Computed example of a mutant assay.
Amino acid sequence: MRYSVVDPGDLERVDERPCDLRRLSDAAGMENVAINRFDAEPGEQLPLAYHSHETQEEVFVVLSGTLHVETPDEEFTVPQGSLFAVEPGAPQRAYNPDDADDSVSVIAVGAPAVDGDAVPYEPEE
C-alpha cells in the first residue's frame, strides 16, 4: 500500500497561468484523477480560457472565499465549503471577480485524468 501527504506550498507554481496553480495529483502519485489547487486573487480566473472537457468530469471544492462560475445559461456563486460540479461537455469559466474583497482558494478534481480534452468555448455576444 502507498500513502502520500502533500503540502501544496512545497510544490512549484505552474508558470503562465492566470492564477496560482499547484498540481497535486502527480505529487501524490495519482494516475486516474487530476487534483489541482488554485488560489486566485480578485480579477483572476482559474482556467486558461472559457472551456469544456470532452470526457472529464470536474468538481471545484471552495476552501476559502467565493468562487464565481460563468456558464452559457447562468452565473453561479459558490461559497466557501461548497462544491460545484461540471459534467463533460458543459462549458464553464471559474474566476474571482474584479470587485471581490478576498482571494479564493479551490481544490479542483477531474476524472479521468486526461490531457488535451479541453475544448475552448466562445460565448455568443
Rank of each mutant, 00 (worst) to 15 (best):
E75K: 15
F76N: 08
D73E: 15
F84T: 02
R93I: 10
P79M: 02
E74M: 15
P79C: 01
E74A: 15
H68T: 11
A94K: 04
R93L: 14
D73P: 15
Q92M: 12
L67H: 02
F84E: 00
S82M: 12
V78H: 05
L67Q: 07
A85M: 11
D99C: 08
E75L: 12
T71M: 09
L67I: 07
E87S: 12
P88V: 07
D98V: 09
D98C: 02
T77V: 15
P88K: 08
V86C: 04
T77Q: 14
Y95F: 13
V86Q: 00
E70N: 13
F84I: 01
N96Q: 07
Q80D: 10
Y95M: 07
E70C: 09
N96R: 06
P97E: 06
D73R: 14
P72W: 07
D99M: 05
S82D: 13
Q92L: 08
V78Y: 01
E75C: 14
P88N: 08
A85T: 14
G81V: 03
D99L: 03
D99P: 01
F76S: 09
D98W: 05
D98A: 10
A94P: 08
F84M: 03
D99E: 06
P88G: 03
Y95N: 05
E74R: 15
Q80G: 11
Q80C: 14
H68N: 10
Q92V: 11
N96C: 09
D98Y: 06
P88F: 10
A85Q: 08
T77P: 13
A85P: 04
Q92W: 07
F76E: 09
S82C: 11
A85R: 11
H68A: 10
D73V: 15
A94M: 04
G89Q: 04
L83M: 12
P91W: 01
V86N: 03
D99S: 10
S82E: 14
Y95E: 10
P97M: 08
Q80W: 05
R93Q: 12
F84W: 03
L83S: 05
E75M: 15
N96I: 05
P91D: 00
A94S: 07
P79D: 00
V69N: 05
Q80K: 10
A94F: 03
G89L: 05
F84K: 00
P88H: 07
T71F: 07
T71S: 11
L67T: 00
D99W: 04
F84G: 04
L67V: 03
P97W: 06
T71V: 08
A94H: 03
S82P: 09
D99H: 05
R93S: 13
V86L: 01
D98Q: 11
G89I: 03
E70K: 11
P91T: 01
E74L: 14
E87R: 12
Q80V: 11
E70A: 14
D99T: 08
A90V: 13
G81I: 03
